[in-house]
Simulated scan of single mutants.
Amino acid sequence: MTAHRKEPRLARLALAPRLLLNNVLVILAGAGTVLVVVLLVTPSVFQLHLDRAGVATDSDALQHILMAVQDAVLVAVGIGIAAAAFTAATISWVVARRLAAPVWDAADTSRRLADGDLDARVLDPGMGPEFATLAASVNELAERLQATEDTRRALTADLAHQLRTPIASIEATIEAVRDDVLPADHQTWDTLAAQSTRLRRLVADLEVVSRAEERQLLLSAEPVPVPSLIDAAVGAHSECYRSAGVRLDASVADSTPRVLVDPERIQEVLGSLLDNALRCTPAGGTVTMAGRPSPSGDAAVITVTDTGIGLTPAEAGQIFRRFAKAADSPGSGLGLTIARAIVEAHHGTLTADSAGPGTGARFTITLPASGSRRTRH
């Protein structure tokens, strides 16, 4: 049988009574100290004053006077201590309750947040920086929980929409085969395999997005010259660009600094941007990947500019959202979301801008410099 440890009574006291008890103990300690000092000092000081005044008294009279003085001092000090203790205890109780109130408020707000009330917030009690920091911290936690919940709901809705099509296609194909409407031939199996691959790719993309946005990607960062990143990306995509009849150019400014990145992850980003540019640029168009230093010199800027269909201002603001894609796009709508998440995991930024439909688009990556610089020869 397990014995339950009995909780001490003092541990069950709330903050206000605990503060009051501490203050009362301080008051009692101070009062005791005053009484001891009075009893020790009064006879010596009284005798000193008698000697200075030249008052000659016999021993009995002196003893009587000393006792009278001690009694008078003790009574006066006792009344004073009692009055001071009452006043101090009253003030201590008021202050203790005042201090305990915001703590209870923060605890109640935390409980409401734990229960799912994400609109709960703590008001700043105006009692100094400590309580202001406590209130701000709880409110920041609430805002992050609210943002996470909003993201979860949006992701759930978007995911349900994205999964509906391949699942419906698989179910319809299986039902048609079962009813002998479709033959169980290679074409049918290819359809099922394609939809299964789409589901697997969607799940894999979602995993990457979640890990990247939560800064849980495993990054093997090292100083890398920007020219090598651009050359690798251009080399991997030159053939598909040639087949599509789209020109792919590259250039890097000599003063472009190295960047501290995971080369494989950044290649994923550059590849996604080049794939996106190729889909949006018709034959005869041009896509240019360029590198240059930032105006401050503490970062490298990589741009991917195309002469394709362009973007509206609304599209430029929404293009990095999950599942944002054109109706005829074969992808999952997560490529640019993953790209931005990877760049932000490297403490960089990825933005898009365009002068409007039909004018092309430009994607800009900014990555912090590694500290050392290397020019392209």
Rank of each mutant, 00 (worst) to 15 (best):
D205L: 02
A204G: 14
E143G: 10
R376F: 08
A212E: 00
E143Q: 14
V41M: 06
R211V: 04
D51M: 06
S44H: 13
D51V: 09
A290T: 15
A154P: 01
A142Q: 06
Q47D: 15
N22D: 10
L50K: 04
K325A: 11
S243V: 10
F323N: 13
L270R: 09
A369N: 05
G235M: 04
S243M: 13
D328Y: 05
D117L: 13
D119H: 09
V246C: 11
H346Y: 08
V203H: 05
E7M: 04
S354F: 10
F46E: 13
R178D: 08
A61E: 01
E130P: 01
V209S: 14
F363P: 08
R242F: 08
L74G: 06
A147C: 05
V37W: 03
V252R: 08
A68W: 13
A136F: 08
T156F: 06
C280S: 03
A221M: 04
A355R: 12
R152A: 13
P129V: 12
V26K: 05
D185W: 04
I27V: 05
L40W: 12
L19T: 11
A85C: 07
L229C: 10
R321G: 15
V259C: 02
F320R: 09
A31H: 04
D115A: 15
G80F: 00
I338R: 08
L218Y: 03
Q146H: 14
T364Y: 05
L192W: 12
A85M: 09
R265M: 03
P102L: 11
H49Y: 10
